[in-house]
C-alpha cells in the first residue's frame, strides 16, 4: 500500500497531467504498473490476460484522469478500475472456459511463483525451488477457486495490504461487507490449503 509520501507524489503527478503534462501519466504508469499487473494476474491466473487487463486499466485511467477529483487516493482509484475490469473479464463465458488453464507461456509467465519448473538452460530446478513453485501454484489455484468478490477482497488485504476502509472504497461496499467477505474468503482458503499450511 502506498504511504503518505507516495500519495503526495501521485497527487502531484495527477495535477501535472491535468495541467497538460502527458509525461506525468507515464510516470504514474511506471509507479503502479507492477502492482496492478500483479493484482490482475492473481485475480485471473493468466499472464496474457493480466497484461491485457493492466493495460486496459491504465487506458481507462488515462481517459478519466482529467475528471479525477482527489476524493480517494490515486492508487485506490486505480485498484478500483483494475478490480472492476477483472470482474468484468471473469464474467465472460470465453474466459470461464479457459479459467482453469494456467498460462505456462508468455513473457511474464508465473515468474518466481510460477509454473515453469525448469531453468532457462533446461536443467531442473533445485528441490527447494521446485517445492516453492508447487506451493505457489497451490495457493494460486486456491485463490482461483474463490468467487470474484471474495478473491478481490482477500488479495487487496493480504497481498496488497490495503486497509479495510480502502478496500471498502475500492469495491464500493461498506465495512461490514468487507469484513464478512474477508472472513469467508480466508475460511475457504484455509480449507483448500489445509494440508500445505499445517
Amino acid at each position: 500500500m502506498a504511504g503518505d509520501g507516495d500519495s503526495r507524489r501521485d497527487e502531484a503527478l495527477v495535477r501535472a497531467f491535468q495541467e497538460g503534462n502527458r509525461g506525468a501519466f507515464d510516470a504514474l504508469v511506471k509507479r503502479h504498473h507492477g502492482r496492478i499487473f500483479n493484482l490482475c494476474f492473481r485475480m485471473l491466473g493468466d499472464s496474457d490476460e493480466a497484461n491485457d487487463l493492466a493495460q486496459e486499466t491504465f487506458i481507462k485511467a488515462f481517459n478519466g484522469l482529467k475528471r479525477f477529483r482527489f476524493e480517494a487516493s490515486f492508487s485506490t482509484w486505480l485498484y478500483r478500475i483494475a478490480v472492476n475490469a477483472c470482474k468484468n473479464r471473469m464474467r465472460l463465458v470465453a474466459y470461464r472456459l479457459r479459467r482453469n488453464t494456467l498460462s505456462t507461456n508468455g513473457k511474464a509467465s508465473l515468474g518466481e511463483g510460477g509454473a515453469s519448473l525448469q531453468l532457462k538452460d533446461g536443467n531442473p530446478l533445485p528441490l527447494e525451488a521446485v517445492e516453492a513453485k508447487e506451493r505457489a501454484l497451490q495457493i494460486q489455484e486456491a485463490i482461483l477457486s474463490l468467487s470474484p468478490e471474495h478473491r478481490a477482497v482477500v488479495l487487496l488485504r493480504d497481498m496488497e495490504g490495503l486497509s479495510y476502509e480502502a478496500i471498502a472504497d475500492v469495491i464500493g461496499k461498506n465495512l461490514g461487507t468487507v469484513k464478512s467477505r474477508l472472513s469467508r474468503a480466508r475460511q475457504i482458503l484455509k480449507e483448500k490449503l489445509r494440508g500445505m499450511l499445517l
Binding site: F41, A54, G111, G113, A136, I139, M159, R186
Partner: peptide, 21 residues
Amino acid sequence: SLQAVSKALGTLKAVKPPDDF
C-alpha cells in the same frame, strides 16, 4: 490457520509485467 493463510498470500512473490509494458 487463518494467520498462516494470510501470511501465505502475503509472501507470494510479485509477478512482474513485461519489460515493454
